[in-house]
Amino acid sequence: MTGRSDLKHRLVTRFQRHLANPLNRRMPTQILLETTGRTSGLPRRTPVGGRTVGQSFWLVSEFGHKSQYVRNIQADPKVRVRIAGRWHQGTAHLLPDDDPVARLRSLPRFNSAAVRAFGTDLLTIRVDLED
Rank of each mutant, 00 (worst) to 15 (best):
R82N: 07
N111F: 09
L33N: 00
N111V: 10
V12N: 08
Q16C: 15
T39S: 14
W87Y: 10
L42W: 02
D6R: 12
F118C: 08
T2S: 14
V81A: 03
R10N: 07
Q89D: 15
R82W: 04
G85K: 06
R86V: 10
L122P: 01
G54I: 04
R38C: 11
T91V: 12
D99P: 13
P43M: 09
S106E: 12
S61R: 03
W58R: 12
G3N: 09
P100W: 02
Q30K: 05
R14A: 15
D99H: 14
R116Q: 15
D6K: 11
R105G: 09
V81R: 07
T52R: 15
D97W: 06
A84Q: 12
L95F: 09
I31S: 04
D76T: 13
P28Y: 08
R126K: 13
P47A: 13
W87M: 10
N21V: 03
Q74K: 04
R17E: 15
G41I: 12
H93A: 13
T29D: 15
V127A: 05
E62V: 00
T120H: 08
L42G: 04
V79Y: 01
Q89M: 07
R25P: 11
T52Q: 15
Q89A: 14
Y69R: 05
Q30S: 14
S106C: 10
V12I: 14
V115F: 00
I83E: 06
K8V: 12
E34T: 13
L95V: 08
L7W: 14
P47G: 08
Q68D: 15
G37W: 13
N21T: 04
T2L: 12
V79E: 00
T36Y: 05
V101Q: 08
S56K: 07
D128C: 01
L11T: 14
R44L: 10
L123A: 03
A117T: 13
R10F: 09
D97N: 05
S61A: 15
L94D: 01
R103H: 01
